[in-house]
């Protein structure tokens, strides 16, 4: 069953001449892990914001088409109602901190307080999220004192405690070091395993190739391809859209190592290794 359905979505920012999103139509199933790739300005972030209703409710401009999330028409609803269905985590961990709370625990509670969730329920959800994302030991620290990876996981915790069915992540690791990136990917993978629908924009191709069920390749506001990672990254023309395939795929393509039946190349380290060893 599809949890997100987008039909002929067009969008243009105020004061801009060209469309940022051009006639997008697709559907996402419940529990899927979707990776969105594409070069800068391809429209990835704008699409994320359209799925959550920030476009057109926060950013005005010209809007056309239908975005439905769990049966709710985003344009006819409001951000509050949608935020109970879907949450979003942004690139910069700093600007997501409300700045009004002194501890991580209280910061995560911020959204829940706004929704009027009873105290007992709040604590239960926060404890659960802290443990799932492996930041339980930082719960009494000041949010501004966390490392980037911890801060970003706190931002994720703040969203998932609101119990959305979909979580959207817009380049959540771009400002993190390798360790922080690893921590965030592990956390998101844990969420995905719990059955949450995950939509993630990411430049770290090797990581997204490893975790995603499907990859959406975007360019110039449109969708070029939306298929299994292996199919998308095996495209001969993918670099034309400003996206390099994973290093493993590039190597195997040059060495001609591929699946005889499907003609597709390996996309992860393990796959590449296995296929290389078996062809020797």
């Amino acid at each position: 069953m599809s949890i997100i359905s987008v039909r002929h979505l067009n969008y243009r920012y105020p004061l801009k001449k060209e469309l940022t999103l051009v006639d997008l139509s697709f559907a996402i199933n419940k529990g899927e892990f979707i990776g969105i790739v594409g070069q800068n300005l391809a429209g990835k972030s704008t699409l994320c914001q359209a799925l959550i209703g920030l476009v057109p409710h926060f950013h005005k401009g010209a809007y056309g088409g239908i975005v439905e999330i769990n049966g709710i028409n985003v344009q006819e609803s409001d951000v509050n109602t949608i935020s109970e269905k879907a949450g979003i985590v942004f690139q910069n961990p700093f600007t997501q901190i409300s700045g009004s709370k002194l501890t991580v625990y209280e910061e995560i509670a911020f959204g829940l307080e706004n929704l009027g969730i009873p105290q007992k329920e709040m604590k239960m959800r926060i404890d659960q999220a802290l443990k799932l994302l492996d930041i339980y030991e930082c719960r009494n620290q000041n949010p501004f004192e966390l490392s980037g990876g911890q801060m970003q996981r706190m931002a994720i915790a703040s969203i998932i405690t609101m119990r959305p069915e979909v979580i959207i992540l817009d380049e959540p690791t771009s400002q993190l070091d390798p360790k922080g990136t690893e921590e965030v990917f592990r956390a998101i993978n844990a969420l995905s395993k719990e059955g949450m629908t995950v939509i993630m924009v990411e430049h770290k191709i090797e990581s997204i190739a490893k975790y995603a069920d499907r990859i959406m390749l975007m360019a110039n506001g449109g969708i070029i391809d939306f298929d299994s990672p292996q199919k998308v990254f095996s495209r001969a023309d993918i670099l034309d859209y400003g996206v390099p395939p994973p290093v493993y795929t590039q190597i195997c393509r040059q060495l001609g190592i591929r699946n005889k039946n499907t003609g597709l190349y390996p996309i992860t380290l393990e796959e590449a290794y296995e296929w290389m060893v078996s062809t020797e």
Partner: peptide
């Protein structure tokens, strides 16, 4: 130190233990 290896280097190590490959071209 909390760091990782370049992707191509990781594959290199898997295949031949003690050789450090730094780029795709080198690998090929």
């Amino acid at each position: 130190a909390g760091l990782n290896l370049p992707h191509v280097t990781q594959l290199g190590y898997l295949l031949e233990k003690n050789k450090t490959v730094l780029t795709i071209d080198e690998f090929i």
